Simulated assay, not measured.
Amino acid sequence: MKKLLLPLAFGLSINAFAQQPASETQAVKKTVSTFFDGMRRGDSTLVRSTLAPGVVLHTISNRNGTTQLGVEKTNDFLKAVGTPHAEVWDERITFERVLIDANLASVWTPYQFYLGSKFSHCGYDSFQLVKYASGWKIVHIIDTRRKDKCQ
């Protein structure tokens, strides 16, 4: 009986450590939401405030049946966001899953991207965030992009 209780107690303690207060989940969601608010406003300073130094931006696409991994330079992305453009960049997300352990968070969000009111593409975003003294910062974004099979 003692041999059975030890693994059970260990398993329960792991679950207790993995649970995070709702306030941490909300703080993570706020960082991601602020990132997209900055994109919609064309405010590269607001977007930059959500990013950790050394952030990595990746995109997965499919060209002619071949998977492509694209890397975007952070400064190029921020310049594009902050350069005036005719249409609002409106990436609409749904927080499907937020996982947190200590100072690491992972966010999974389906999205639809609009240029102004015109649909452009959809996919999923995956964010990795780290909690610094100043709050949650995005350290990695990777997304998929397609024009079909959108929600």
Rank of each mutant, 00 (worst) to 15 (best):
A52T: 13
K137T: 00
K137C: 00
I138H: 06
R146G: 01
S106T: 14
C122E: 08
I93T: 13
H121F: 02
K149M: 03
F113L: 11
Q128W: 08
E24A: 14
A9H: 09
N75D: 15
S23K: 08
K3D: 08
D125P: 03
A22I: 11
R41V: 01
K29M: 15
A80T: 10
L46W: 15
D76A: 06
D90P: 00
R41I: 02
Y132K: 01
F119R: 00
L104W: 15
K79N: 08
L115E: 07
S33P: 12
Y114K: 02
E72A: 06
L4F: 13
K149S: 02
E72H: 06
K137M: 01
E24G: 06
E72W: 08
T94Y: 07
T94S: 07
R40C: 03
I141C: 01
R63S: 09
L6F: 12
T94C: 02
L46M: 15
Y132W: 03
T45G: 03
L78N: 02
E72M: 03
G38R: 05
S44M: 11
V88T: 08
I138S: 04
A105I: 14
S134T: 12
P21G: 11
Q151I: 10
V81L: 08
T109V: 01
G123I: 07
S120D: 14
F35D: 05
D101P: 15
S106Q: 11
S61H: 01
H58F: 12
C150L: 01
V47R: 02
Q20H: 05
A18D: 13
R146H: 03
N64V: 06
V81G: 06
N75T: 14
D101Q: 15
I142G: 04
G123F: 12
Y114R: 01
N62C: 07
L78A: 05
V32C: 14
V98D: 00
K2W: 12
A16I: 12
Q26Y: 12
W108C: 01
T74D: 01
D125C: 01
K29H: 12
V139K: 02
I100N: 06
I93Q: 05
F10V: 14
R48W: 13
P53S: 10
S49I: 13
G116N: 11
N64H: 13
T94P: 05
N64P: 12
A80N: 09
A18S: 14
L51W: 10
D43Q: 07
Q128N: 03
L129F: 05
A133N: 13
K30T: 15
G123Y: 09
V28S: 03
T31P: 07
F36M: 07
R146T: 04
R92S: 12
S106Y: 13
Q19T: 15
W136D: 02
F119K: 00
S106L: 12
H121T: 00
S49R: 09
K147F: 14
W89K: 07
G38Y: 07
V56S: 08
L6Q: 07
T45V: 12
F10W: 11
A16V: 12
C122S: 02
S120Q: 10
F127L: 09
Q151F: 14
L4C: 04
E96N: 01
L129D: 01
F127G: 11
E24K: 10
K79W: 10
T83C: 04
H58A: 06
T109K: 00
G38P: 06
P110S: 04
L6V: 15
N103Y: 15
R41P: 01
I93C: 10
L12D: 08
K73V: 13
